[in-house]
Amino acid sequence: MVIQALLIAVIMFLTKFLDWGFFNIQIRPIWIGPLVGLALGDLRQGILMGAAIEAVFLGTFSVGGSVPSDVASAGVFGTAFGILLGKGTSAAVALSIPIGLLAVLLFNLIAGVFFNFVVDFEDRAVANHNDKLFTATHYFAIIFYPTVFAIMAFVIMMIGVEPVRHMMASMPPFVNGALTAMSAALPALGMAILVNSMWDNQLMAFFFIGFIMAAYLKLGTMPIAVLGGAAAVFFILTDYKKRQENKNRPSGPAAGTAGGTGSNEMEDFLS
């Protein structure tokens, strides 16, 4: 167990380090799951659970620095518990949700509270003309953030598995049906959040085109992406040309400043 807990802690460290420390890689359950599976000796289950958790967290991503749920923790612990408890993907998904939400608390403690003091320290280092101290503090922060998460992962793996196993074992059978339904329904929220973030009246038809391409034409995601990409390129070129024409029109006869304000109005109108 100690070895497994250590491996999970290393994976946790790696995800957080590659996310904010260095490289800014997309930290997603789709590849965290297999890593955890590899560490716990069941790669196939890791892939399957990672994919199931990914589908739920597809709409969860950080926009402008606010983090709705800690996707890395959800992926790591969801898969780890799913494999260790042997309860399948629906249990992995069901556990990943509260874990993701709880881990945000730890995240907020670091980024919302602790790092403010680090930044203040850096401000003073720069004010005192000490750029070496600034660099040292910067490196400290880069290592500190993943380390805290790694320690949390180690502790949870050491003391958390048995209580959760006990809890799952003492559950009545209808809970299984509830967990399965939950893991099937939750990806819908991810889709809804994504649609909401990209909402555009002019373009909503394409949602249904994509839906029918998958449901009735039985196309995979790759051909759908290629078709959608072609439509997008066509749209961009047409839309840009239209903008150019709209802009050039008013500045034709009445040259100078009048034309300038005209095109501005047009732009305001279009935007």
């Binding site: 597809l58 819908a188 889709m191 949602f207 839906f211 997008a232 839309d239 732009e267």
Partner: peptide, 30 residues
């Protein structure tokens, strides 16, 4: 010139198509 807005809208078009497809493929609710 509006090129940036055009590209952003084009991206949304592609994104919405994909989400439509994934609504069928990845929401296994029955």
């Amino acid at each position: 010139s509006g090129l940036l807005s055009s590209i952003t809208k084009g991206c949304s078009l592609l994104g919405l198509t994909m989400i439509g497809a994934m609504t069928y493929l990845n929401v296994p609710l029955k």
